[in-house]
């Protein structure tokens, strides 16, 4: 009885629209009408055959996996360092949660300015003499040296920073993709760190003590004791991160709006483009429904791990 209202509300506002989304995707409905002629799986096939959709699908996967890889590594290191109290921790933690607390749409505008084509602070730092009094230290030189090293790896064409023609972060395809990945990693990292921290602090002190008694230290302790105990909750954080990134529309919409030339479209922005801007409601719904199988897999994985945590 106590659960009733909440369940009813959720069914009405999530279940019904979800059903409606499926229905729309099977019709040729356009903006202004809620109904259309039944077209079966026509939309799904049509949508699948457009090059922009393929790009969007590929980008969604690449952006999500790349940014979450960065997040997991960063959060693991950061959470370990934040575990023990030290002076100034409150303030440093405040700085670290800032990206998470800031409304995404607004903080992404901050990046729009950082990546600006003319006044980018990144480019300024890269190509100007950073030592006062003409010390001749240019950051782009070591960066180019590093890029030259990367260029020897297979499949990589890194290019160089040209000080007279600095990088157009959002105007060039590869850099635009890189920028989106970095912004996504930047905004999810605080959240993942907090969840990792929760996992670490939930390891009982007795376990730590027992490990120390058995002579486990450093990496060995981490590998045999901390990692297995922390893994389930780390996976939960990762799955959340994947959901947040794959379903996000704001970052790409504000940063590149899918450009240059639709090369950075993701499923969500492409659905918005097709469904709202081009008014093909049915096709737009079909595009966004391609997200559903991914989410279903994640849901199943989450349940698995939830159960595992319970057992341990």
């Amino acid at each position: 009885m106590l659960i009733g209202p909440a369940v009813l509300f959720i069914v009405l506002l999530v279940g019904v629209p979800l059903g409606l989304a499926v229905y729309l995707s099977l019709t040729n409905a356009t903006a202004g009408s809620l109904t259309g002629h039944w077209v079966g799986f026509h939309n799904f096939v049509d949508v699948w055959n457009t090059p922009n959709f393929r790009t969007a699908l590929k980008n969604t996967i690449v952006f999500t996996l790349a940014s979450q890889a960065l997040v997991v590594v960063g959060a693991a290191i950061l959470a370990h360092a934040l575990l023990r109290p030290f002076r100034g921790r409150w303030f440093l933690r405040f700085l670290i949660v800032l990206p998470w607390a800031a409304p995404v749409a607004l903080s992404t505008i901050g990046f729009l300015w950082i990546f600006d084509s003319q006044f980018s602070v990144l480019n300024w730092t890269l190509v100007h003499d950073l030592l006062p009094g003409g010390g001749h230290f240019y950051l782009y030189k070591p960066v180019n040296w590093l890029l030259g090293g990367i260029d020897h790896l297979p499949f990589v064409h890194a290019g160089k920073v040209d000080p007279l023609n600095p990088p157009q972060w959002l105007g060039q395809e590869t850099l635009a993709k890189l920028s989106i990945i970095l912004v996504q990693a930047w905004r999810i990292l605080p959240f993942a760190t907090v969840i990792f921290l929760a996992g670490l602090s939930s390891i009982p002190a007795e376990v730590e003590d027992a490990a120390r008694m058995d002579g486990a230290t450093g990496l060995r302790k981490f590998w045999h004791v901390t990692l297995p105990l922390q893994l389930p909750i780390a996976v939960v954080a990762l799955l959340f991160g994947i959901v947040f990134t794959a379903t996000d529309m704001t970052v790409v919409y504000v940063l590149t709006n899918g450009g240059p030339f639709n090369s950075t479209q993701v499923l969500t922005t492409w659905a918005y483009q097709t469904g709202i801007v081009s008014s093909s409601l049915g096709e737009g719904a079909a595009v966004s429904l391609y997200l559903l199988p991914v989410l279903a897999v994640i849901a199943i994985l989450m349940l698995r791990f939830a159960r595992k945590v319970e057992v341990s």
Binding site: P17, L18, A21, T247, T268, A271, G284, L292
Partner: peptide, 8 residues
Amino acid sequence: PPTLLFLP
């Protein structure tokens, strides 16, 4: 996600 529900 909202991105799936906003159309309907």
